[in-house]
Simulated scan of single mutants.
Amino acid sequence: MRKIALTSLLIFITSLSYSQKIKFKNDKVLADDKELFKTERTGVFGANGFIFIPLNSNKPLFSLIANNGGTHMHLDDDYTQIKFLTIGQKAEIRGGNLKEAIKLLLKNEIIKDDGTLDEAKIDLFIKNYDENISERTVITR
């Protein structure tokens, strides 16, 4: 019983270490109240999101686009597309929550503390998380 309690405590503490408070405020992204990026809105019908730009530059790094699959009330087909604009690669993950996508990028150390990308880790991230949702989804409108 003691091992189960210790294991549960360890899992809880580990999950707290990766939880960060993400906010979109005044065309900026804040992680734990620290500005990371400037943003620009992007998207089309059924898909909206942001392009993320470093604070000290005007060159976009990546974009996050939440796609509802053409169904507003059906959440099972929602996904987020992450486009790494500096290297021309993308990943698609389940769910349409952009804040959770940013947390996933921070957890995997794709986004560094100074608001830049660690391009060396992007390939591994894509191999581990990309689900190619748009290639296997038929959207009827």
Results as ranks from 00 to 15, higher is better:
Gln81Asn: 14
Ile82Leu: 05
Phe125Asn: 04
Phe125Arg: 01
Leu117His: 04
Lys59Glu: 13
Ala91Trp: 07
Leu64Trp: 07
Gly88Glu: 06
Met73Lys: 13
Leu106Asp: 03
Asp33Trp: 11
Ile65Pro: 04
Thr80Phe: 04
Tyr79Gln: 01
Leu124Arg: 15
Leu98Ser: 11
Lys107Cys: 07
Glu109Ile: 06
Pro60Ala: 09
Thr39Arg: 03
Phe37Glu: 00
Leu85Arg: 00
Thr71Lys: 10
Met73Gly: 12
Asn58Arg: 07
Thr116Glu: 13
Gly96Ala: 00
Asp123Glu: 11
Gly49His: 05
Gly70Gln: 05
His74Met: 08
Asn48Asp: 13
His72Pro: 14
Thr71Tyr: 12
Lys90Glu: 09
Gly88Gln: 06
Phe37Asn: 03
Ile102Arg: 01
Ile122His: 07
Asn97Phe: 03
His72Thr: 11
Ile110Thr: 03
Gly69Asn: 02
Tyr79Phe: 11
Lys107Tyr: 08
Ile87Asn: 14
Gly96Phe: 02
Leu117Met: 09
Ile111Trp: 04
Ile87Leu: 15
Ile102Asn: 01
Phe45Arg: 10
Ile87Glu: 13
Ile65Asp: 11
Asp76Met: 09
Leu98Phe: 09
Leu36Gln: 04
Phe125Asp: 06
Gly43Cys: 08
Leu104Met: 06
Ile126Met: 06
Lys107Gln: 13
Asn97Pro: 00
Thr39Pro: 07
Asn48Gly: 15
Arg41Trp: 12
Gly69Trp: 10
Thr116Asn: 09
Lys112Gln: 13
Gln89Trp: 08
Asn108Tyr: 12
Leu105Phe: 00
Tyr79Glu: 05
Ile110Val: 11
Thr86Lys: 03
Ala120Ser: 10
Ala47Ile: 07
Phe84Gly: 08
Ile111Lys: 05
Leu124Glu: 14
Lys99Asn: 07
Asp76Ile: 13
Thr80Asn: 03
Gln81Met: 15
Glu92Gly: 03
Thr42Arg: 11
Lys90Ala: 14
Phe45Asn: 12
Tyr79Arg: 02
Ile82Arg: 01
Ser57Cys: 08
Asn128Gly: 09
Phe37Gln: 02
Ala91Gly: 06
Ile110Phe: 05
Ile53Thr: 02
Phe50Ser: 13
Leu64Thr: 05
Val44Leu: 10
Asn68Ile: 15
Phe45Gln: 15
Asp32Ala: 14
Arg41Asn: 13
Lys121Cys: 07
Asp76Ser: 10
His72Arg: 14
Ile65Val: 08
Pro60Tyr: 02
Asn97Cys: 02
Lys103Gly: 04
Asp113Pro: 07
Leu75Val: 12
Leu104Thr: 04
Gly95Val: 02
Ile111Gly: 00
Ala91Lys: 04
Leu105Met: 01
